[in-house]
Computed example of a mutant assay.
Amino acid sequence: MTQSEKHVLGLSGGRDSAALAVFMRQNYPHLDIEYFFTDTGKELPEVYEFLGQLEGFLGKPILRLNPDRDFDYWLKQYNQFLPSPQTRWCTRQLKLRPFEQWIKPYLDEGTLVHSYVAIRADEEYREGYNAKQKNLQVHLPFKDNAIDKAGVMEILDASGLGLPKYYSWRSRSGCTFCFYQQKIEWVRLMEEHPDKFEEAKQYEKTAVENGSPFTWTQGESLEELSQPERIQQIKADHEKRLQRMRDKKQTNPLRPDEEPIDIDDLYGQAKGCLACHK
């Protein structure tokens, strides 16, 4: 008896996973891949817009996996303590848990589930989902095909999709109040989506009042960060970093179009959760 198989590809609303979906559609059209997006309910509006464009290109709907319990529920469960790089309960409860609940029946019945993950050839493999079941196989097509960041950009440009609009001011998808944001990204969130910034500020205020040891951004509250003098300081620091990066960067004559500079490349900090930001 032939073992049944299922092919899945998770989309974060970000650049790399979108490019992988395009790559798989173009190079493996015979595979019936189910594309899914785990919706926390706290995503940027630009993410939903980009997912709609991607659905048009793929010619099939992207399944929305919604957590059975929302962010506010889990915040209460964790005693109003905000998630942080040290305690990433948001990824675990709002991203990984819905995925596990979705594929569990298939794994339990013995279906071989192939999961395609957008780790590029120029990245170290970061564990996004620890496959404990022997019938869940993780594949890294970009690694296998030597596709790097510039290759991802070429795929998106050639498809006509280009980058999600939020890349003009932020280099990650994920929740509006993601704690992996750099300070310049918080400033830009305040400018682009003031309502989302105010929501994040209110979450932080409630958390601090309940004894949370974490604020959204290390070393200062959003109230402090949003003061005019502090905003000027953050912007000036960011411009200095950009100029230093441009001065060090060598133009590749084979790729004259400059790759966009990711904010994390400037600040040299953690890239964030694989399930959220690829």
Rank of each mutant, 00 (worst) to 15 (best):
P85T: 03
R88Y: 06
R88L: 10
R88Q: 12
R88D: 12
W89R: 07
W89C: 05
C90H: 04
T91N: 03
R92T: 13
K95G: 07
L96M: 07
L96D: 08
P98I: 05
Q101H: 07
Q101Y: 01
Q101F: 00
W102Q: 04
P105I: 05
Y106N: 05
G110N: 04
G110W: 01
L112I: 13
V113T: 01
H114W: 10
S115V: 03
S115Q: 14
I119E: 09
I119T: 15
R120V: 07
A121S: 15
E123H: 06
E123S: 04
E123G: 05
Y125S: 00
R126P: 01
R126A: 09
E127R: 13
E127S: 11
G128S: 12
G128V: 13
Y129G: 13
Y129L: 15
N130Y: 13
N130S: 11
A131R: 13
K132C: 07
K132A: 14
K132E: 15
Q133E: 15
K134G: 00
K134L: 07
K134F: 07
N135S: 06
V138Y: 00
H139G: 10
H139W: 09
H139P: 08
L140H: 14
P141T: 07
K143C: 06
D144F: 02
A146G: 03
A146D: 14
A146Y: 10
A146H: 12
I147Q: 00
D148F: 04
G151W: 02
G151Y: 02
V152T: 06
M153Y: 13
M153L: 15
M153N: 10
E154Y: 02
I155G: 03
L156I: 11
D157S: 07
D157F: 05
D157G: 00
A158Y: 08
A158P: 11
S159E: 01
L161V: 11
G162K: 05
L163V: 13
L163R: 06
P164D: 05
K165E: 15
Y166W: 09
Y167E: 12
S168N: 14
R170V: 15
R170D: 15
S173N: 06
S173P: 02
